[in-house]
C-alpha cells in the first residue's frame, strides 16, 4: 500500500510518500502567503521524484495548522497525533515527543502504540519556538545554520529570561553592547528557549526516552541546551522535520485498512 502524508505547517509544507516501510519521497516548500499552492508544488515534486501519479496513492492524510484546507484530502490528523505516531514508528521506545516548529512548541506523552496520553502546547508570551532563534541570528548577522553550532563553542552560561521574546531580544542587544562573544550570546539564547520548552515538557513529564522532532531539531545548539536542561539524552530522528508528514502517511495507511 502506498500512502501520502502532507504536513501544512506554519512555515513549510512537507510531503512524504510511504510504501510499506519504505519512504518513496520527501519534499518541502516554503508555505509563504499561498500555502495551498505550496502544497500543490510539493506534492507534484514528490510524485515526480518517485515517478508516480496521484492514482497510485491508496490514501492521503493531512496534518499541520493548514490541514483542513489541504487540497488533496479531507482526511486529517492533528499535529499532536501525527508527531506521536511518526516518532513511535521510528523509535518505538520513545514516550515523550517534543515537537518544535517555527511558531509553536509541543510536548506529547505517548503510549507504546503511539497513542497520545497527554499533551501540552506552548502558551502565549512564550519565546520558545524556532522563529525566535531566527530573529536573533539575524540580529547578530550570523547565518541560522552557524548560529546553532556557534553555541557549542561556548562554555559560559549567561542567564537570560525568555518569558517575553521582546525583552529577551533587548537583553541580547545589551549583551552585544557589552561586547559579549557571539558564541556566548548564542548559548544564552538557546538555553533560554530550551528552558521555555522544558517548562512545557515538564507538564506532561519527562518520560524516557525523549525525542525531538520538527525543523528546530536540526539546530545542534538547541539540542545541546535541551539535553543539558533536562539532564537526559534526546533522540533526533534522521529527518526530524518530516516526522509529522510521516505520522500522517501512517494514519492514512491505518485508516484504509
Amino acid at each position: 500500500m502506498t500512502t501520502a502524508g502532507i504536513d501544512l505547517g506554519a512555515k513549510f509544507v512537507k510531503v512524504l510518500f510511504l510504501k510499506d516501510d519504505e519512504v518513496l519521497a520527501r519534499t518541502q516548500e516554503r508555505a509563504g502567503f499561498e500555502p495551498i499552492e505550496a502544497a500543490r508544488r510539493a506534492f507534484a515534486a514528490a510524485l515526480s521524484e518517485c515517478g508516480l501519479t496521484e492514482n497510485d496513492l491508496d490514501a492521503i492524510c493531512a496534518t499541520g495548522a493548514g490541514r483542513q484546507v489541504s487540497p488533496f484530502t479531507k482526511d486529517s490528523v492533528t499535529e499532536v497525533g501525527a508527531a506521536a505516531k511518526g516518532t513511535i514508528y521510528l523509535h518505538p521506545s520513545v514516550r515523550t515527543v517534543i515537537d518544535v516548529g517555527g511558531e509553536e512548541g509541543r510536548a506529547v506523552k505517548c503510549g507504546e502504540t503511539g497513542k497520545v496520553e497527554d499533551f501540552a502546547i506552548n502558551e502565549q508570551c512564550a519565546a520558545g519556538a524556532g522563529s525566535f532563534t531566527e530573529s536573533i541570528a539575524r540580529a547578530l548577522e550570523v547565518p541560522l545554520e552557524e548560529f546553532g553550532k556557534l553555541s557549542l563553542k561556548s562554555e559560559k552560561s549567561i542567564p537570560m529570561n525568555a518569558q517575553c521574546a521582546v525583552f529577551a531580544e533587548s537583553e541580547v542587544v545589551s549583551l552585544v553592547h557589552a561586547k559579549t562573544p557571539k558564541e556566548d550570546i548564542s548559548r544564552a539564547v538557546h538555553d533560554a528557549i530550551a528552558s521555555r520548552i522544558i517548562s512545557m515538557v515538564r507538564r506532561v513529564g519527562i518520560n524516557n526516552e525523549v525525542a525531538l522532532v520538527g525543523g528546530v531539531a536540526h539546530n545542534p545548539g538547541f539540542v545541546d541546551a535541551l539535553e543539558r536542561g533536562m539532564e537526559t539524552k534526546v533522540i533526533v530522528p534522521e529527518h526530524p522535520e518530516y516526522v509529522g508528514a510521516l505520522g500522517a502517511a501512517l494514519t492514512a495507511r491505518e485508516r484504509s485498512r
Binding site: P159, A162, A192, S195, S199, R202
Partner: peptide
C-alpha cells in the same frame, strides 16, 4: 535565587508573579 528556571510550569500558571 534570581536564576531562570524551568521546573514550576506544571505547578503555577504563568500569569502569576515570577
Amino acid at each position: 535565587s534570581h536564576e531562570p528556571q524551568d521546573v514550576t510550569e506544571p505547578h503555577i500558571f504563568g500569569m502569576f508573579c515570577p
